[in-house]
Amino acid sequence: MDKMEKYIRDGKSGMTPIVKTVVRFVMGIIFIFGAYVVLYGHLTPGGGFAGGVILACGFIILTLAFGKGLALSKFSDKWASIIDNSAALIFLTIGFIGFSGGYFFMNILGKGKEFALFSAGTIPLCNIAIGLKVTASVFAVFLTLSIFGRFVSKLVDDYEDDTEKE
């Protein structure tokens, strides 16, 4: 946790220490909640997309509060892209496995008992794949539009120049 302390004391990147401290406490809860929504998607409201967006929002809050350094060291754009693609492939693979039961996307696993975590066959697996995919791609979209948009910083400068002229 020394590393986190250092990040919080660091006044150059990110927001004020108050925000950083609060985010540090909230982070864990956000991730647990996101994971819960993904894993229990077949039993309660939610599912892959909703949970994935919550997880991605966790990373986005991390980026906003601590600056890009910490977030990119935890979840870099390269890994976002790799997880994005492999999660889509996992989802398709689940579909292909269905061929062994006769049809594409056939639910071939046992349905299990009602209200149990391990039930409903392949649907929880699909939810996990979708959750990974959405986490990675929403975070990648955020990165592309904000940090790696090399034009964005330039954009803000231009805008300020324009307003000064007026």
């Binding site: 979209v141 592309t144 539009l145 948009g149 034009f151 964005v152 330039k154 954009l155 231009d158």
Partner: peptide, 15 residues
């Protein structure tokens, strides 16, 4: 997402 990114690119080119 696609619209916003095209929009940013448009601003980059046309100001």
């Amino acid at each position: 997402a696609l619209m916003v990114s095209i929009c940013l690119r448009l601003y980059e080119k046309y100001k």
